[in-house]
Simulated scan of single mutants.
Amino acid sequence: MSGPLSAAPQGGTDLDHVCSAKGCRAAAVHAVVWNNPKLHTADRRKVWLACNDHQKSLADFVALRGFLIEVVPVGQLADTDG
């Protein structure tokens, strides 16, 4: 993940939420939440951030492996996600 999950200042943009897709620098609006049970405890929630263009491909990548938990708007992430 690229940075803290704090909300952007009112009226501003959150430059910390950048898409996790390789080479993409677009603002992330989706959070792909996943967990690899071979590496992480059951309560661990890993997050990849995604712009509109990469949300499906990033979610499909982890879903294919059985790791996808959910896809939510970035604003719904908790401080413990990441």
Rank of each mutant, 00 (worst) to 15 (best):
K22R: 09
A21C: 05
L58N: 08
A27I: 03
R44F: 11
P73N: 02
K38Q: 13
T13F: 06
V32H: 12
N36C: 14
V74E: 01
A27R: 03
D81M: 00
L68I: 11
P9K: 15
T41E: 12
R65H: 06
G3M: 11
A27V: 04
Q10F: 08
L15Y: 09
L77F: 00
F67V: 09
V47M: 09
M1C: 12
A50Y: 11
H30L: 03
N36W: 04
H40F: 09
L49F: 01
H40Y: 08
T41R: 09
G23T: 15
L64E: 10
H30N: 11
Q10H: 09
K56Y: 05
P73G: 03
Q76L: 10
A8R: 12
T41D: 11
D60R: 09
Q76R: 13
C24Y: 06
Q10Y: 07
S6V: 15
E70H: 04
Q10S: 13
G82L: 05
Q55Y: 04
D81T: 02
H17C: 08
S6W: 15
A78P: 01
L39N: 13
V47N: 09
W34L: 09
M1L: 12
R65A: 06
H40P: 12
V72Y: 01
A7H: 15
D60Q: 12
K38E: 04
L15P: 01
T41G: 10
D14A: 06
V71H: 11
N35I: 03
G23E: 14
A26C: 14
W48D: 14
L15E: 05
W48F: 13
V32W: 09
G66C: 05
D16I: 02
W34K: 11
P9Q: 12
A42G: 07
A26E: 11
L77Q: 04
V32P: 10
L68R: 05
L49Y: 00
A7I: 14
K38I: 06
V33F: 02
N52S: 14
R65I: 04
R25T: 07
L58W: 06
P37V: 14
G82V: 00
D43Q: 05
A50G: 13
T13I: 07
A63K: 15
V18W: 02
A27Y: 00
T80D: 06
C24S: 10
D43I: 01
L15K: 12
C19Q: 02
M1P: 10
A26W: 10
R44I: 03
A31C: 04
L64Y: 10
K46P: 07
S2A: 07
V32R: 10
S57L: 12
V71F: 14
V72H: 01
N35A: 05
